[in-house]
Design a protein around this nucleic acid. Structure first.
Lengths: 342, 342
DNA sequence: TTGTACGCGTTATCAC
DNA sequence: GTGATAACGCGTACAA
């Protein structure tokens, strides 16, 4: 590795402009009290030499890296990429960059990625959801690192959040189906052990059913990873039961799409023979036939708010530890009254 | 900002272990010639103090950051997230981290993001496609930064690539439709000015049509951004024409899904009344009814190969400037013979 | 095998 | 306003 071509340094710029390194640094960092004359000379020298500051050196000296990190379970779900996208744009507006790390819904991987990001020197962190390894909190606290969680609505001073309640909308979805006369409700959910969002939604579904005196039997509850294929196969499995459900509550839109596609393939009419609900309101939801009844998750807004709040926190502001956004029900054609002819 | 709690430093560990800082550093960096005795003492001290190395200081001193950067047009298309995901995992295997930046198909944003990543000190870079601002190449070369492009098959020594040919599969798709008797072919594509993949695919479509003596008229060529809604609306527009097309070539699967959903909504039968093709082979493709005829883009394999090749390059190896992977046609039910009854 | 001391490129604290 | 110069935290020749 003999890449010994000398990059131009701040000192080179200083020499070229005939000023001190301190002055160059001031110009570069938009410090106050610099004469426009000096500024001009420095900027000319920077351009001439094609100078690019050295990020690590800068971070070391200033004890600030100008980046915040985000830990996402996966980028494969476009609801997350949407949120991330907005977060990144808004952070850029505050002059912060975004470092993204993924952990495939594995909390040990999340913890490891957290350490990597901290080591990288991020100025703040965004985590998704409320479920994390306990030592994550310890680390965060010990280093006094500003952080925020999102996507959940759990009231916990340890885990400040900007998110939404997952339980109530899930309950509303189930109540909507019950009101339509359905009694054989099935649930297709992601594994709930280390995913509070999935758990909350499940809880909402079951609560509503129970309150209506309509307990959901175990064989109507299917746990799979989020994915089109998984939803597709889950529906096939449900339809093989002696008494198939008349309505299916899906943990997210992706699963619901899989279910709907399988139903279409099988010639099952929706909503006449089967009602289906999702969660997220992905762009595709409204274009399905029938259009998917779901919950509109405020992904974009979360990205925006999280950026503002975290930056404020980094700059020393105290903020409420919970901010809830609206996640409204979107009732469309995929849910309809129980067909009593059948 | 008075977060003056002293983080434990390498020196603290050294003191705790009763050894020199150099020794601690050696243990941490798995240097050879360290007695297991010393290693044990240091590791104990590290654990006891909860020491976390300071990334910037380490990068500054070692002139290596241990991360490579990737510039992606968007994370919203799951074909990219799939590739990125594999890239990240494979890089971790080589002890490199991945910094992701997105530019929303705007090449000026790409250039800006490139500078940010370079400033950040990445050890190498991955770009997607062949279209970039010329100054990107200049920068890359001047800093002698190892880099790779992917997702395209263009033979250009300036832009080493691990990708696939976009033209031939596109041509094959069109030929497939022509062979089925279709003559009224439409194309729905992303803007081609600054997107070589879209341009190559378009080129393949048009070439095949022309060679079959079946020029595609301008009103059959629609340019929109990639998206479900965009595909949906494009189909509606095409169907309003006096003589609607009997087959539609879509620039990617997402557009094709939009088209198919619009067709289903409009009661257009596929493939009897309309044949549709995509490009990517997303998971959803096989589950549509009918299943989507498309091209299987080797996203996972690209991620894997790019990781290995770029790391090799960083470590000084010379590699061929082009490596082509297979992107096979996947013929499914969404394409069928021209219906001459109509 | 281990320790000493300097250098990495910048920012920030002083004086002037 | 501007210029010296001491940190910043770690890696690594070099010496021992």
């Amino acid at each position: 590795m003999n890449k010994e071509l000398q990059h131009t340094l701040l000192a080179d710029v200083a020499r070229e402009a005939g000023v001190s390194t301190a002055s160059v640094s001031r110009v570069l960092n938009r410090a106050p009290h610099v004469s426009s004359q000096l500024r001009a000379r420095v900027e000319a020298a920077v351009d001439k030499l094609g100078y690019v500051p050295h990020g690590s050196a800068r971070a070391l000296a200033s004890r600030r890296i100008g980046a915040i990190g985000v830990l996402v379970p996966t980028l494969d779900n476009s609801i997350f990429s949407t949120g991330i996208n907005r977060l990144e744009q808004r952070l850029k507006h505050h002059d912060y960059r975004l470092l993204i790390a993924t952990y495939r819904y594995d909390l040990d991987d999340e913890l490891e990625a957290l350490h990597t990001l901290i080591q990288q020197g991020v100025d703040g962190l965004v985590l998704i959801g409320h479920d994390h390894r306990p030592s994550a909190l310890t680390t965060l606290k010990r280093r006094q690192l500003p952080f925020l969680t999102c996507w959940h609505g759990i009231d916990d001073a340890d885990w400040p959040t900007i998110g939404f309640d997952n339980i109530a909308p899930a309950r509303a979805l189930a109540e909507h189906l019950l009101l339509l006369g359905h009694r054989r409700l099935a649930v297709i959910s992601a594994p709930i052990e280390s995913n509070d969002r999935a758990r909350s939604r499940m809880q909402g579904f079951l609560q509503a059913a129970e309150q209506a005196g309509c307990q959901i039997p175990a064989e109507y509850i299917i746990t799979v990873n989020y994915g089109i294929a998984e939803g597709f196969e889950a529906l096939e499995a449900l339809m093989r039961l002696d008494k198939p459900p008349t309505a299916i509550l899906c943990g997210n839109d992706t699963l619901a799409f899989g279910v709907m596609l399988a139903a279409q393939r099988a010639g099952i009419r929706m909503p006449e023979d089967l009602s289906v609900t999702g969660f997220d309101d992905l762009p595709q939801a409204r274009f399905m036939t029938p259009a998917l009844t779901t919950v509109a998750v405020p992904a974009t807004n979360i990205g925006y708010q999280v950026a503002d709040a975290l930056v404020a926190r980094i700059e020393g502001e105290a903020l409420p530890h919970r901010q809830l956004l609206d996640a409204p029900l979107v009732i469309r054609g995929s849910t309809g009254p129980l067909n009593t002819d059948a």
